[in-house]
Structures are given as structure tokens and as C-alpha cells.
Simulated scan of single mutants.
Amino acid sequence: MKKKTLYTILILVFAGIFILGAVQVYLQLREYGEGESSYTEMEQYVWVDEGPEDTGDERQDGNQSGEGEPDISWPAVDFDALSEINPDIVAWIYIEDTKINYPVVQGRDNQYYLKRLFDGKWNSAGCIFLDIRNEPDFSDRHSIIYGHHMKNGTMFSGLTEYKKQEFYEGHPTILLMTPEQNIRVEIFAGYVASVGDNAWEIAMGSDVEFENWLEEAKVRSCFKSEVAPAVTDRIVTLSTCSYEFDNARFVLLGVIR
């Protein structure tokens, strides 16, 4: 009798564990779906022309078009409509032929958008956001944009593909659109960092310190790039989780052109 009771209890315990696990998986999948659907709906505010415009006029980022400039189809972004949904928007980030096609916000701290969608709804996908220490116009020497590495391949999950040389060669450019300008970012390094590293320094003490910081990034990079950053350049870093060790991060660095 005691054995039968024990077996019954064990069966109930295992059944409870199974049901709890199934519920957790269901809730996670539903949350993933809600997050992905939310950002897919936002793509109605962004559109890309079929081919680049080649007018020879001044580019929107204030630099003159000329020989050697890459042909770029700049996505057009309806910032007025997006600002009505969330006034925290500062940019839109786009990497061609990837899933990275998202609004960029800047909150009052670096915590809120870790678990909030663009519309403010709680969701583990969070939102792509600019470091609170940065100016929203990307005028700082070093600007940092964060995004989660989601298991369903959304948000900044695709950044870890840059651990492969061939992926970098096929996707060497990040496009940032702000309400005031279009910003082309030429990628020059990407590497796995520990949270204790200096990958997220904003204020460099001197040009020498900044130059050493840039050189370290190039040395540690998973891929080789011919892009040579200088101390006079402005740098953008994209940061997401990686899983080589506890608290690992993958950072992708580019030069604003």
C-alpha cells in the first residue's frame, strides 16, 4: 500500500513538472511571437527604394557624394508617426539582408527598455536602445547601441554571425537613420568581450588612449577588415549577449562616414 502511494506521488510530481515546463515553453513562445509581431507591424513606417538615387547632390548626412562612395538604398523612415507612438525614438537601424531592421530608442536609464517593446509593453525581447550616456545625434566619439540576443533570431541575434569572415564581407555596413540625417557606419571589428572589459567606454581620456582602444579592437576582431579607424573618427558599437562564457558579450564596431 505504501509503495502504491509513493508511486502515485511520484507520478503526480513528474506530471506537475511536465505541465509546468510545457506552460513555461508556451508562455515563452507566445511572448516571442508578440515581440516579433510588434516589430513587424512597425515596418509599415519604413520603406526602401528599389535602387539608390545618384543625383550627385549633397547627401543627407552632410557629406558630398563623389567617386568611391558606395551605392546605398537608404530606407525612408516616418519619424513623425513613430514619435507619436514613442517620443523616445532617436534612430532606425538597418543592416541589409538581415533581420536587423528596428527602431532605436533612448530612455531615462539603461534598464527600462531591456524588458519593454517600442510601445512600452512588457516583453523580454525589449527594444534596441542607445546608451543613456550618449548624445542622441551620435555626435560622441563613441556611441553604444544595445539589443538582446533572442533565441528566435530576432533583435541583435544576427550580430554573432559576424564571427565569420564571409558574413562580414557580405554585410560590411550599418545604416542609421535619424530625424536629422542618414549615417553610414563602416564596420571594422567585432569580438567577444567580458563585461569587465573596456568595450563600453564612452569618454576616452586622451587621443592616445582612444588610439590604443581602437587598435585593441582590431587585434581582437573575429574578422579582418581594411577599414582603418582614426582618432578623429566617431565610433558606433553594437552590443549583445554571447555565450562563450558567463557574462560574455559580442561587440561590433564601426566608423561613422
Rank of each mutant, 00 (worst) to 15 (best):
Q60V: 11
G21A: 07
A76E: 14
R257M: 07
K163A: 03
T98P: 02
T154F: 06
V255W: 01
D140A: 12
V25T: 10
H149W: 02
R30A: 10
R30F: 02
E69T: 14
A22R: 13
S157W: 12
Y26V: 07
N134P: 04
T98H: 04
G66A: 12
K99E: 10
S37L: 12
W92K: 05
I85M: 10
T178D: 01
G205E: 14
G35C: 05
M204H: 15
Q64N: 06
Y168N: 00
K3E: 11
V192L: 05
I174N: 04
I132Q: 15
N152Y: 08
I256A: 04
S239E: 03
D57C: 04
F223T: 12
N152I: 05
E169R: 15
P103A: 13
V208F: 07
F118D: 02
G205Y: 02
D71W: 12
E50H: 10
Q44P: 06
S206P: 09
Q44L: 06
N134Y: 05
E216K: 14
F14M: 14
F245C: 07
G126N: 04
I202G: 08
S221H: 11
Y112V: 08
K218Y: 03
I93R: 04
I95T: 08
G56K: 09
Y45H: 14
A15R: 02
E201A: 05
M42R: 15
F118R: 01
T55Q: 06
T98C: 11
C127Y: 00
T5L: 14
V195T: 14
N134V: 08
G35S: 07
I17T: 10
V25K: 13
D109N: 15
A189F: 03
W74T: 09
Y39D: 03
R249D: 10
L175D: 00
N63W: 06
S225R: 01
D97E: 15
S225H: 06
G196V: 11
G254C: 02
V195Q: 10
E169N: 12
T55R: 07
D57A: 11
V90W: 03
F138K: 00
D78C: 08
G190K: 04
S194L: 04
V105Q: 05
D246V: 15
Y102W: 05
N152D: 15
E84W: 03
L176F: 02
I100L: 10
S239Q: 05
P229Q: 09
F188Y: 15
T178R: 03
G153P: 07
L252W: 00
N86I: 08
G62K: 04
A76K: 13
Y162D: 04
A81K: 13
Y94L: 09
V255D: 01
G158Y: 06
W47T: 13
N182Q: 14
T240S: 13
